[in-house]
Design a protein around this nucleic acid. Structure first.
Length: 472
RNA sequence: GCCCGCUUAGCUCAGCGGUUAGAGCAUCUGGCUGUUAACCAGAGGGUCGCAGGUUCGAAUCCUGCAGCGGGCGCCA
């Protein structure tokens, strides 16, 4: 065995990605990684080494005269972690541009082939969900998680370049944002023996916050408070919903991006949303060509073409009323109503995006009755300045609105839907003092990633998923 | 929450009332003059998700349960 001699120590190029960027041919170096596959012939063995820095592997040649075949066969199985040293040689007549001719290696950790679940063959995504702690060893998840990292960076970059302030809104909150959506309650009260008043009410004065507390379902209300001083802000953090939704598009814990802008009206906000999405697509195409090529070949043949197409096309904007007319004239037999006033269902959205427009669609000015209390009422008195961005394959990817900045209108609306006004005093204060027009939207990171990676289940674009009944 | 489907070897699957349940890959053994998810030969590996029922006979049909997946609703 033995450690690499001292002359190898100062390594300039450590990762396999570095080797491909600028191959130090004929140099002696050490590379560290995990075995993807091994092939053995009479005189030499070949190991494909991966280290997660690129989807490409480094071919390592292990001559049996230097390293015994028995040791290689015993130790170097798929999944084993090791350091290997030798000389990088060009191989112009082989599929790969170069290979490492090894002088020795040190095994860090073996992977017993009898029990190690991953093989050099492809596995189903469903199987990999059962071993989420090992998924990062597959190229698929390396590609997906690297794109997730890159697009997260691009989100910050986009807003920072445009003067938005990144604000951290609380994860623990005293109330529900929209009076809807199911909350995870957070408590330090003992569940086996909850202290109660004589009349049966929970004695919250004994709880940690001396009142009920929940995990946030949205940072929007706090985002508005900060935008009313900083003008343009955005949030980017985890969000929690205790909805028992069992679909490939819902998570109990997911990441949301919520910009909020003072002095923006609905049209400006729709422009921002469209520009933002195209920026993220362009960034991903520019920086993750290798990953996108892999995912296109492996999972979604139309992925690359769809990204290219979307980044060029102007999103089709339809008012809700226009959308309803289009649906009514479509000649389609929809399961759900297309009467004015009914909400657009998945089948309607799919028709608008995939058949009618064949590109992303923004629907705006929805009926007041089917939207949240904080959305700004339009002049017609029956619609609100809300919009949804609908994408092919995904459906709704962004939901946003201009907020109701008029105190009387907001108060009236809150009373109509029966909100506890006391809990929203601070929110109402924003309308009492220096209230100005403002708007914002929410983008679900995982849904965006479905579009960017060609994956079809949000459980496959977040490292450890939480859904009803499941914690990976 | 409602509806549908699937569950057979470590993995991906075939078998769909009739001998002792199969294939590819993986594993192990042997071979191969440098392989490209190498190749060639051989071997081991299964209470056919669990429980009950129908039948001369059940992996196969029925019922219940569980796990997983999908559609719808809700949304991001």
């Amino acid at each position: 065995m033995g450690k690499p001699p001292g002359l190898y120590a100062p390594l300039v190029r450590e990762t396999i990605a570095d080797l491909y960027r600028n191959p130090p041919l004929e140099e002696r170096l050490t590379v560290k990684g995990w075995v993807r596959t091994r092939r053995t012939t009479r005189k030499v063995s070949f190991v494909e080494l991966q280290d997660g820095s690129t989807l490409k592997a480094l071919q390592v040649v292990l001559p049996h005269e230097g390293i015994s075949a028995e040791r290689i066969e015993k130790e170097l199985h798929t999944g084993a972690g090791l350091a290997v040293w030798g000389t990088l040689k060009a191989t112009p007549d082989r599929p790969q541009p170069f290979e490492l001719v090894a002088e020795g290696y040190e095994l860090y950790g073996p992977a017993d082939p009898e029990t190690y679940p991953l093989q050099k063959k492809a596995h189903s995504l469903e199987f990999l969900r059962e071993i989420a702690h090992l998924r990062a060893r597959t190229r698929t998840f390396q590609a997906v998680f690297r794109i997730r990292s890159g697009v997260s960076f691009a989100i910050h970059q986009y807003f920072q370049e445009r003067g938005f302030v990144y604000v951290h809104t609380p994860i623990l909150t005293p109330s529900d944002c929209e009076g809807a959506g199911q909350l995870f309650q957070v408590t330090t009260l003992p569940l086996q023996n909850v202290p109660k008043h004589p009349d049966g009410r929970v004695a919250y004065e004994e709880d940690f916050f001396k009142r009920p507390a929940y995990l946030t379902v949205s940072g929007q209300l706090e985002g508005e408070m900060l935008a009313m001083g900083l003008s343009k802000i955005y949030t980017f953090g985890p969000t929690f919903r205790a909805e028992p939704s069992h679909t490939p598009r819902h998570l109990a814990e997911f990441w949301m991006i919520e910009p909020e802008m003072a002095f923006y009206d609905l049209a400006m906000t729709m422009d921002l949303a469209e520009d933002f999405l195209k920026y993220l697509i362009r960034h991903t195409l520019r920086h993750f060509a290798e990953e996108l090529a892999f995912l296109t070949e492996r999972y979604e043949p139309s992925l690359l073409a769809e990204l290219e197409n979307t980044k060029e096309s102007a999103f089709l904007r339809l008012s809700y009323t226009e959308a309803i007319e289009i649906l009514q004239k479509s000649g389609k037999n929809f399961q759900f109503s297309t009467e004015w006033g009914s909400d657009l269902q998945a089948e309607h959205e799919r028709y608008l995006v995939e058949e009618y427009a064949q590109r992303p669609v923004i629907v705006y000015n929805y009926p007041k009755a089917i939207k949240a209390f904080y959305m700004r009422e339009n002049e017609d008195g029956r619609t609100v300045a809300a919009f949804d961005v609908l994408f092919p394959r995904i459906g709704e990817i962004i939901g946003g609105s201009q907020r109701e900045e008029r105190y009387d209108k907001l108060l009236q609306r809150m009373q109509e839907v029966g909100l506890d006004l006391f809990a929203y005093e601070h929110y109402l204060d924003l309308r009492r003092y220096g209230s100005v027009p403002h708007s914002g939207f929410g983008l679900g990171l995982e849904r965006l990633l479905l579009f960017l990676t060609g994956m079809t289940n949000v459980r496959d674009v977040i490292p450890f998923f939480r859904t009803t009944d499941q914690m990976a």
